[in-house]
Write a protein that binds this DNA or RNA. Structure first.
Lengths: 113, 113
DNA sequence: CTAGTATATTCGAATCTTCTTATCTGTGTC
DNA sequence: GACACAGATAAGAAGATTCGAATATACTAG
């Protein structure tokens, strides 16, 4: 059971391992959007965007609803937003660590004079 | 600011997008371990493992401590375990959805007779 | 049926990842 | 110093990912 679970996690991470796909998921945070709107909003090439959608669909991160000529995308499970939010906090805490480390080094440099 | 943050998230996901690296992170859930122990425990090739360690170090997911002839690895920030736990739940809820969907289809098939 | 709009798919080139094998570096022991 | 051990790195082949350009499909309007 562990092996398939690890594969699953790795696949989800793989699916999210691209800035454009992160942007797509984040844009859907507050609900569904038509493909065209996403493409405009994120400034993507149509074909490229569609490829990224396909990757996210394949991993069942996105679902789509067709209405006439348009395709509306949405997140299948908002839990992934939670993951992105955790990483945002992680990013800033890491930044803070780095900054205070640099400050300490700076102090050291000052002390030398 | 959004662009670098998305890149950061994508990089973290990329670093975790391999079953072996997931296994390494999970093995460190309860504290540091020497490289050799990880390698034995997970049944890895030494060189390959070392490359995976390097990827996780580069993204500052792991930190290492050298003691004589040995290198001890540990997670820099346990928040990533939280992310893995969220995905475990996500996996099971997806499984449950799939199973009940299959059951419904099964019922449909029965009804046809 | 034709034309137009929205989205998806296919193909190929460039780039990145992964694995294996071989080699290197650092540390401890005699 | 010479050797052994733990771990890191380098090189290259095989495979996966990414992108743009072209093409395909599906729906709508007239």
């Amino acid at each position: 059971m562990h092996e398939p679970l690890r594969r699953f996690k790795a696949d989800i991470f793989q699916a999210l391992a691209h800035p454009t796909r992160i942007a797509i998921v984040e844009a859907l945070r507050h609900g569904e959007l038509p493909a065209g709107k996403l493409i405009d909003q994120l400034g993507l090439e149509q074909a490229n965007a569609s490829q990224h959608f396909a990757i996210l669909r394949a991993k069942m991160i996105l679902v789509n609803r067709k209405a006439g000529n348009h395709v509306f995308y949405s997140l299948r499970d908002p839990v992934l937003i939670e993951v992105l939010d955790i990483l945002r906090r992680y990013f800033y805490s890491q930044l803070t660590d780095t900054v205070s480390m640099l400050e300490e080094v700076g102090q050291g440099e000052q002390a030398k004079r």
